[in-house]
């Protein structure tokens, strides 16, 4: 499951742009992940420029190919 570090997000939307299942929502000062839809691909974790997101169940990662 993807966790969001508290008080760290800058709400830039970079993670939203890459999420393959469109389950991240970024508002002016709010970020939400719909965990029921998330496929734990970890792509959002890689792209976040300031390491806000992290995977707390590493084995769950399906590591979708970069392409």
């Amino acid at each position: 499951m993807i966790e969001i570090a508290e008080n760290k997000c800058d709400f830039c939307g970079c993670c939203v742009g890459v999420c393959p299942v469109n389950c991240i929502e970024v508002k002016e000062a709010d970020i939400l992940i719909e965990h029921e839809i998330c496929i734990d691909c970890d792509i959002c974790v890689y792209v976040c420029p300031i390491e806000v997101l992290y995977q707390i169940e590493p084995n769950k990662s399906t590591s979708v190919a970069a392409a």
Binding site: C12, G13, C14, V16, G17, V18, C19, P20, N22, E25, V26, I43, Y46, V47, C48, P49, I50, A66, A67
Partner: peptide
């Protein structure tokens, strides 16, 4: 609606950016 665009996706258009095509900036 910018890099974080969801408008197209709600309508069924494919706009997801591939990992290799996203530049992560600061």
């Amino acid at each position: 609606d910018g890099v974080e665009s969801r408008v197209g996706r709600w309508a069924g258009l494919k706009t997801t950016v591939k990992l290799k095509d996203m530049e992560c900036g600061i």
